[in-house]
Amino acid sequence: MTQATASSGVSGSEDSVGAGCRYETPPASELQRLMWTKLGSSGHMDEVQPRIYIGDMYAARDKRALQGHNITYVLNAADGRFNVNTGADFYRDANITYYGMEAYDTPSFNLSRFFYSAAEFIKTALNSPDGKVLVHCVMGLSRSSSLVLAYLMIEEHLVLADAIKAVSANRNICPNAGFLQQLRELDIKLHCQTRCE
């Protein structure tokens, strides 16, 4: 399914990251088929990897439920006045560390500029004793799942297809077409570097 090839002298589709290296990520249509595998509908919040949760705006605003799940970090991928306007003050009495990103769920939005900072925040949460992190947006389908997928690719070194399988086994996800393309570009960059350094 996922192919990685290192070759010398191949032109045309070579990635500029590594001369002579080409990593082929699956086409978007194949990746989309991997996403909706969980039976039933998505809940407000699901643990998609150990201590990593993806959720929607209702989960983000339910401090009692967050405390019940021992959530200690919240990454809001839909921060801002016209999105899910919580912020650090909202979580102060719950002893939750907050990080907000003002991102929009449109294919033209450049979410990739947040991939590394989101991955670092998630890594920090997991490196803290008993740390658990909720990554959310409005519906918990596109922005939040894209950031968790990027984390798994950057920090856990999974190829995109494997990251999608790991997350979608526990929650139905649906990055928009633009985000999926940005994740495919990240996949090529990361795995071309890994195989060609």
Rank of each mutant, 00 (worst) to 15 (best):
A119T: 09
F121R: 02
W36M: 10
P50W: 08
S117A: 12
A28S: 15
V133A: 05
R64S: 14
Y116H: 14
S117N: 09
R195C: 04
S128C: 03
E185T: 15
L147A: 04
D56M: 04
Q67C: 06
A60P: 00
K132P: 01
Y53P: 01
L152M: 15
L149Q: 06
M45R: 07
R184S: 13
D89F: 03
R33D: 12
M45T: 05
V148I: 08
V148N: 04
Q49K: 13
A88G: 01
N83Q: 15
F121D: 03
P26L: 12
R113W: 05
Y104A: 07
S128A: 15
S128G: 07
S13M: 11
K123G: 07
L183S: 05
T5N: 08
G43S: 13
L152C: 12
A161F: 00
V10N: 12
F90I: 00
S145I: 01
D79G: 00
N170F: 12
S117M: 06
D62K: 08
L183V: 03
Y98F: 08
L160T: 03
R22W: 02
E47D: 04
Q32W: 08
L147E: 02
A150M: 04
Q3D: 12
S41D: 12
S142V: 05
E47K: 06
S8G: 10
A6W: 05
E24S: 14
A28I: 14
I154P: 04
G178M: 11
A59S: 09
T86P: 02
S142C: 06
G178I: 12
S29K: 13
A65S: 14
A125G: 03
M35A: 06
L186P: 05
E156H: 05
H44R: 13
S41M: 10
E30Y: 14
P50R: 14
C192P: 07
E156L: 04
D15M: 09
V135W: 00
L147N: 06
S16Y: 10
R195L: 14
L31H: 07
M139Q: 11
V135C: 03
P107W: 04
S42N: 14
L158Q: 13
N176W: 09
S144V: 06
I154R: 01
Y91L: 05
V135K: 07
T124H: 05
D187C: 07
K132L: 00
A88S: 13
I173K: 08
S11Q: 14
S42Y: 02
R22V: 15
L158C: 09
G68W: 03
Q49L: 14
I54L: 15
S29C: 06
H69R: 13
F114N: 10
G9T: 13
L160M: 05
G12L: 11
A103M: 12
K132T: 04
V84C: 07
V74C: 00
G12V: 11
C21L: 08
V74A: 06
Y58A: 10
G40A: 00
L190W: 12
L75W: 02
A161L: 01
T2A: 15
A150Y: 03
H136R: 02
N176S: 10
N76K: 02
P26Q: 02
G9N: 13
K123M: 01
G100Q: 01
Y73V: 00
S13C: 12
R113K: 14
G18I: 15
R33C: 08
N172F: 02
A78C: 08
H69Y: 14
N95E: 04
N172Q: 11
L149M: 10
C196R: 04
A77L: 03
V138F: 10
T25E: 09
A19Q: 12
R92P: 01
S8D: 11
